[in-house]
Design a protein around this nucleic acid. Structure first.
Lengths: 340, 340
DNA sequence: CGATGCTTTGAAAACGTTTGCACCCATTTG
DNA sequence: CAAATGGGTGCAAACGTTTTCAAAGCATCG
């Protein structure tokens, strides 16, 4: 371990008595170097404690082999599973991953996206906080940055991967109805997501087909946990309260439960509740939530695959992928009648 | 918006009819430029859609103004609050933040730290997964990378900021004892953290002073949620089960609850439980956990402050900060007797 | 013995910025 | 009127790599 002066490849080269080029080639395995010189170089590297400089390398290569991830980590724990899958997939491809937390704040999201682009990442995978009008989306499009949208499908000009919302809603409303619930309320998620639009649509279609549709039971979209709680409150204060609440995403689930709980109501005794998006602890705490689960690993893998393709050919036609949800039946909707 | 050729400052300079240097100075505000030329430059920039290249800039400046964050996002939701605070603080200082998820995997942690160093971040803030022997910690020390350790205080050669574990344990054991619990079990967290050692120490001291210490009620450290569940299981199968369990961190809390719940036991009816680390949903689900809460914002701010200082003077004497915990009394330990 | 081919290596031009130094011109000053 | 001042700008050398082009050494062959 030397004292401390900037160690560059030049230092290594001198120490090993070879040229700069040779050091580079040894380190990258990018052309044949005789065994003896290679060893000389390696020895020099460890002797002086040389650490490669990614910045210089990226500049010279005009490529970073890095993709940027922009998610809202705060409430959406399941994003972490998606991220893990993306990372695993990218690592296999020799790609680095830069993670950023957008906090679901469109302004912050935009700053992150711009920063990422200035850092010259090869591509960006984004769970957009805003709709097609959002600054981030516009930026990505105008600058032709290779990008993939996840979960909230905001804009069909991009590659997208998310849940099959139609199936998700049907899975859970069918379940609710089978258990005998009639007055089913919906608290939809963020209003600008097409995801939300689709879920509302599917919900109305399903209930309407059963003659159960009551638009008074569909609250306005909830953008925050607080808003979800407020909508729930209004629902419970209304003339005839619902006998089941379907929460459009985990933020809504948490908001609704907060309100229900603070009123001292019990689930499923006083009210059924079901959500979209699972929680790790859902099996251990009461009420044990019945939820629709997303195939996170699959979503992540697909996103990774799409971004690679997009990086390779920026002009390919955009693809949209819908993954199959599954229903996790627990106890928050009442007891399941025995199958006959 | 032009078709698509690499736009560099040179392009801008030609378009504006000025020199490369002037463009740079205009963009950075780094020396006076006459208003008219400045406007010329700005116009050229938007005309051709120039996007600055962070890589080249960092290389030329030999500095990235970036700090790396290495946390385990998966289980430790409260890390997100710490991260938010760090980000806010760094933004105020014009520093970028690169976030990485270590998954509490020492090997991955090491890879990340090395990658960050190769990217030439100014400093690293780390919630170490391993102890002082871990590859990451060793790497940081050997390469003299400015670093701050958070939460799990692994090595006194570094700046550190975490919880005052002594106070935390006393807060919650006192509470438990006041409620009449005698047989209090402890499920400690990851064994290599000094945090864990301190918590066990404080726990033993407190109970011992009350003549309540029973080493049979202290399980081995739990490294995963699964292990925590197993330790709980063993505890409950033992001859005389505890009347209260204190979980050393949120992973332990979740593991313990999983087991308790799967046995159909009710908290606090059959058993009291208290944890260290709060959950956002803890108020809405049963049992409503009584926990010790960390001052996340404060921890984050301190970490940011420390890393700045460390970056400025690599050889300053390391500081260790212990933040004051607070007890959040809910219902999982039984009902609080009225204060007299 | 000169030409040919193979193996191994080096020199130097990128990559896109920042920044120290010097320059030019117009104005003020002695 | 020459010299000093100062506002505004440009040149070119870094920054630490990658990579193209070509050369040097050496044996083989006709």
């Amino acid at each position: 371990m030397e004292k401390h002066g900037r160690k560059t490849m030049q230092t290594v080269a001198e120490r090993a008595g070879v040229s700069l080029a040779t050091v580079s080639h040894v380190l990258n395995g990018t052309r044949f170097v005789s065994k003896t010189t290679a060893e000389l170089v390696h020895k020099a590297v460890t002797d002086i404690g040389y650490v490669p400089n990614t910045i210089a390398r990226d500049l010279a290569r005009s490529s970073t082999s890095t993709i940027g991830l922009v998610f809202s980590l705060s409430v959406n724990a399941f994003f972490l599973d998606i991220i893990s899958a993306i990372e695993a997939e990218c690592q296999r491809d020799g790609l680095s991953v830069l993670l950023f937390d957008s906090n679901d704040d469109p302004a912050k999201e935009w700053r992150i996206v711009r920063d990422l682009h200035q850092r010259r990442v090869d591509g960006i995978i984004l769970a957009p906080a805003g709709g097609p009008e959002s600054a981030a989306i516009r930026y990505l499009h105008e600058n032709r940055v290779p990008a993939v949208l996840v979960d909230r499908l905001a804009d069909s000009r991009f590659d997208q991967v998310g849940l099959n919302n139609h199936d998700a809603i049907h899975l859970v409303t069918d379940h609710l109805c089978n258990l005998g619930h009639r007055r089913i309320a919906l608290i939809p998620g963020h209003s600008t997501y097409t995801t939300t639009v689709e879920r509302i649509e599917a919900f109305r279609a399903n209930l309407s087909a059963r003659g159960l549709l009551d638009d008074g039971l569909i609250t306005p979209p909830a953008h925050t946990l607080q808003e979800a709680a407020e909508h729930t409150s209004r629902l419970l204060d209304s003339g005839h309260i619902p006998d089941a609440i379907l929460a459009g995403n985990n933020l809504c689930t948490l908001g609704a439960m907060r309100e229900i709980s603070s009123r001292g109501m019990k689930v499923p005794r006083d009210l059924a509740i079901a959500g979209i998006d699972d929680f790790e602890w859902a099996d251990s705490f009461e009420p044990r939530l019945t939820v629709v689960r997303q195939p996170c690993a699959e979503i992540g893998q697909t996103a990774a695959r799409l971004i690679r393709r997009r990086v390779a050919s920026i002009d390919a036609a955009p693809e949209a992928h819908r993954m199959t949800p599954s229903l996790i039946v627990r106890r928050s909707c009442g007891y399941m009648p025995a199958e006959s």
